[in-house]
Design a protein around this nucleic acid. Structure first.
Lengths: 330, 330
DNA sequence: AACCTTTGCCGGAACGTTCCGGCATCTGAA
DNA sequence: TTCAGATGCCGGAACGTTCCGGCAAAGGTT
């Protein structure tokens, strides 16, 4: 603790005075704009570093007529799935790095007029969601995680190869002895669920097996998922079950164990719950934090003009194979 | 969508002009400061509402010489425990309501000088943590969640009756047939763990049973916790186990099941994992989101002078009794 | 009627930044 | 030698808000 330095805040004027230049030159030197000699630039930079100068974000945003805030919409209650928690965290962290604030927009709250933000990130926009529709209509730069199932598309899209990853998962199940894996998945209002459904049907067609699907709502409760699973258990002998909705796999795990049928179980969304389940459940790791970061990053590039409207960016996901899909002795 | 209104931003000048008053009067009317007649105040408010006036946060913070940001420190990796996720979310939401940003400060990053914030929230400050020590030394208004185990104390403290709640939990275990519940808990560098330990020893003394404790580190890994549990299983016949660290209970659950000893299990931190475990694990719900909100709220009251330095505020927590501690037939 | 106090309202300055335009000085070609 | 252009630097205005001080009118007291 080398002396309290609560004297007065060090502004760009302090830096300029100390470096013996004008505030304009100091500003130009630090930001790389204007015409400044290399010597001056270095000198100013050194003084700024020495004094610990940090630009005042409020003043900067005021001058630039930017709000310093981006809006972030996620469809459902955050607490339900840890996916969105991580997603938001990633976006917030990335925004902070750009000196930006994040305002959370939930589907519940009324939206009388466009929020005061410079841009929007939409996590898993659902087709038909009126809040999403109105946000898309603001004309603000927008990035969506997964495509918007509506007519119009966001300026930037971060997406993952869900269908391909599900195909890999199904292949793994087959090699573990499952002849006809079933799927519990949400409806096509979300691009993510639609991709999974499509991928599943494609795989079934390729393998020549009959599809075995039950649809549930996007934010299905445990009861709803369990009902679907029971329905599957009743209708046909089940050798493997893939649950798409977050948390669904852990909800049905006890049910499968009770049924005693030795059913392989996998989830399309990884989480602490699937990792810690007994046995641990094979799952697709969507890497939500990185997805949030990627969305925010793309939005800032759009805002800066560094990326053109219509940019699409692939977000890599991973398959985590665990005990729930490993046959003993294979 | 009643006409795009992307003309020009509506500032306080717009409101003032429209209401036929000066900007000063408009400002005073909207904020309740200065001397304004009730009629004028109402008129201005109505105009502001009609035009959809939203004060420019950057300008406000610039003028007020506030940063519009509070710092938030949490001890460990966020992803590990959902507790801190929720905690941070609560604080962020509350800060947004006050038009404030939140900067996350992790113990990892270097802190060469005090961050540009108006105040600090410290979640579970650990005694001896150099980052926490330096943050406490900045002189900034500070609120801590749980007391700081060091010499100095934060300006505001939000705390919960952990010892009392553990006492209730132990009583419940006893009424479920456990004669001598054991405890796995972290060391006294965190006030939370220290309180639990104290509460446990107190209960044991009151009941006349010998304490059975194993200490682990604050951010204990699954292996570390399992080693402690195995040690307990070996040393004496175990009828009940209370795990303090977040996630610890779910980590040891499979171990206890294998041991076959029909051990009651409870956690001092609730989470999705404990709720969804099989069987669901009895846990203390720390209501982390509300804790984060409460901390942020107290900090803003301190900043506004509405609460005096040294304010302590009780955060209520709850006990969620589940199947893991219910004997069949009782 | 002369004075003081209160009430209601207002103009201007300031917060720290960016950016437009402008003014010297230097370079090199005519 | 002169002049055009490039280079390096700078002053002042502006962003939208709050707040200090002030001014006129209304109300109350002697």
């Amino acid at each position: 603790m080398r002396g309290v330095q609560t004297d007065e805040p060090v502004t760009i004027l302090t830096v300029a005075r100390e470096a013996g230049v004008s505030k304009t030159t100091a500003s130009d030197a630090l930001r790389g704009s204007g015409r400044v000699s290399e010597a001056t630039r270095a000198a100013v930079a050194q003084v700024a570093e020495r004094l610990g100068y940090v630009p005042n974000g409020s003043a900067r945003h005021l001058r630039r007529a930017s709000t310093g805030t981006i809006g972030l919409h996620v469809p459902e209650v955050l607490t339900r799935s840890s996916y969105y928690m991580s997603f938001v965290f990633g976006a917030v962290e990335r925004a902070a790095r750009h000196d930006y604030d994040v305002t959370l927009i939930t589907s519940g709250q009324r939206r009388p007029r466009p929020p005061r933000v410079d841009g929007l990130v939409l996590g898993d926009p659902l087709g038909g969601d009126p809040v999403v529709e109105s946000l898309m209509g603001t004309g603000l730069p927008t990035v969506s995680c997964e495509r918007f199932p509506g007519d119009r598309q966001a300026d930037g899209v971060v997406w993952s190869e869900h269908a391909e990853m599900l195909t890999r998962l199904l292949g793994h199940l087959r090699s573990s002895g499952a002849a006809r894996p079933a799927l519990i998945v949400a409806g096509d209002e979300s691009d993510w669920a639609a991709s999974l459904h499509r991928g599943y049907l494609g795989w079934c067609a390729g393998q020549g097996v009959a599809p075995l699907v039950r649809r549930v709502s996007f934010d299905a409760t445990g009861d709803e998922v369990r009902a679907a699973a029971r329905d599957l258990l009743r209708s046909s002998p089940l050798d493997a079950l893939v649950c798409a909705p977050a948390g669904a796999a852990t909800e049905v795990a006890p049910l499968l164990r009770e049924s005693g049928g030795d059913v392989l179980l996998a989830s399309c969304v990884d989480s602490a719950a699937t990792r810690l389940a007994d046995p641990p459940i094979t799952a697709i790791d969507l890497r939500p934090r990185e997805a949030g970061e990627s969305c925010a990053e793309l939005l800032f590039e759009l805002l800066a003009g560094a990326a053109p409207a219509g940019t699409e960016r692939l977000h890599p996901i991973e398959l985590a194979v665990r005990a729930s899909t490993r046959r003993v002795g294979i």
